[in-house]
């Protein structure tokens, strides 16, 4: 079976700073994989390498059997199959929610106006913001904006979804709405790679959890094991701090 995502010996440096120091891992179709780790550990960079928003320094990214790091690959075509949700939402501020969800359907997939609008409305309804179609991003709460962003990615009918800390910029009381939408997606069988600090979500929803630190994968295994019974000392320390912030030993 071909992996949805396969990453081989991936390195990424920014100038002299090596952020990813040889990553090997894969995600199978239908799997939900959460990437956790301290800030600066390279998790977001890894995610951004998957759809080549960052150009890897070396190594291979293979998406459904197609090697993206091959220079002859049509990267725009490949990206259509990968939805991405950003920490800062990145909705287009000069367009309404509906237009945000329609624009790339119209311009990239060349769908007709009626078809694109129907798909847009269906997806906005799916994420629970059907009543906000005509609102501009500035008129929406963070949680609503992020759900519109998810609808925008889903409208392209992607094979897999990347989430880059989707709830980190949200007020605490709005996190739940977004996580509920993501949980629903996971239950529908969407392949998902999620960088997150939401340990409860990772434990409950993810099939696998990957712990990264210092540009390498320290631990990779079933969610219950990595979070419930971590094997490595670094994972243990990290989880202790995240799950109980007042706990200050080992610093």
């Amino acid at each position: 079976m071909t992996h949805a995502i396969e990453i081989r010996d991936l390195h990424k440096s920014f100038g002299r700073l090596e952020v990813l120091k040889g990553i090997d891992f894969s995600v199978d179709p239908g799997q939900v994989v959460c990437v956790i780790g301290p800030s600066g550990s390279g998790k977001s960079t890894l995610l951004r390498c998957v759809n080549l928003l960052e150009q890897p320094t070396s190594g291979k990214v293979i998406l459904e059997g197609v090697e993206l790091t091959d220079r002859d690959v049509d990267i725009d075509a490949a990206r259509r199959r990968v939805g991405m949700v950003f920490q800062q939402f990145n909705l287009f501020p000069h367009m309404t929610a509906l237009q945000n969800v329609m624009i790339s359907q119209r311009r990239v997939l060349k769908r007709g106006r009626a078809e694109a609008e129907k798909i847009a409305r269906d997806n906005l309804e799916k994420v629970g913001v059907a009543d906000k179609c005509d609102s501009y991003p500035i008129q929406l709460s963070g949680g609503q904006q992020q759900r519109v962003a998810i609808a925008r990615a889903l409208a392209m009918s992607p094979d897999l979804m990347l989430f880059d800390e989707p709830t980190s910029a949200l007020d605490p009381e709005l996190v739940g709405d977004v996580l509920t939408v993501m949980r629903k997606l996971a239950e529908e069988g969407m392949t998902m790679l999620v960088v997150t600090h939401e340990m409860a979500f990772a434990r409950d929803v993810a099939d696998r959890v990957v712990f990264m630190d210092g540009g390498v994968i320290v631990e990779d295994g079933p969610a219950a094991q990595v979070i419930g019974d971590p094997q490595h000392e670094r994972t243990k320390v990290f989880l202790r701090r995240v799950l109980d912030p007042t706990h200050t030993d080992n610093i």
């Binding site: 759809n51 725009d76 990206r79 991405m84 950003f86 990145n90 790339s104 311009r107 392209m156």
Partner: peptide, 21 residues
């Protein structure tokens, strides 16, 4: 913001399409 073009590219738009739209 840089994220605007990134969002456009992540939706499969080419560089020039992202700039124009």
């Amino acid at each position: 913001p840089k994220g605007q073009l990134e969002a456009a590219r992540s939706l499969g738009m080419s560089y020039s399409r992202g700039m124009i739209s």
